[in-house]
Computed example of a mutant assay.
Amino acid sequence: MQNDLIIVSDYCDKCHIEPAFIDLLQENGLIDILLEEGKPCLAFSQLPDVERYSRMYYDLSINMEGIDAIHHLLERMESMQKEIAALRGRLRMYGDLF
């Protein structure tokens, strides 16, 4: 198995979450589950997102629809922050002309 993957059942055991929660995340398009040697796995790069969703679901009692809405809002906010940074860069370039 690749070093950048963790088996879903192992992750769930270590983090004390139910595998069905991981299935819900995949069904809602929030994460991708990969099959490695016939076993469902998560990429390490997805673990921060899974941990965030897990805190929302278990600690804050936010349902899957709410998590999906929050996910889309955070993506939109990140996109807008990148756009603002690019616009500030362009303004600095024009500011140097005067």
Rank of each mutant, 00 (worst) to 15 (best):
M1I: 10
M1L: 09
M1R: 14
M1K: 13
Q2G: 10
N3D: 13
L5C: 14
I6E: 01
V8F: 03
S9P: 06
D10S: 08
Y11E: 03
Y11G: 05
C12T: 06
D13I: 08
H16V: 03
L24T: 06
L25D: 02
L25F: 11
N28I: 02
L30W: 01
I33L: 00
L34S: 10
L35A: 08
K39F: 08
L42P: 00
A43P: 03
A43H: 07
A43F: 04
F44D: 02
Q46L: 09
P48R: 01
R52W: 15
R52S: 07
R52E: 12
S54D: 06
S54H: 08
S54R: 12
M56C: 12
Y57S: 01
Y58S: 06
D59Y: 08
S61R: 08
I62P: 08
I62R: 02
E65I: 12
G66Y: 02
I67L: 08
I67V: 15
D68P: 04
A69Y: 09
H72M: 07
L73P: 07
L73G: 05
L74C: 14
E75S: 12
R76K: 13
M77E: 14
E78M: 11
S79Y: 08
A85T: 13
G89K: 06
L91H: 04
M93W: 13
M93Q: 09
Y94T: 14
L97A: 05
F98G: 08
F98N: 10
F98W: 09
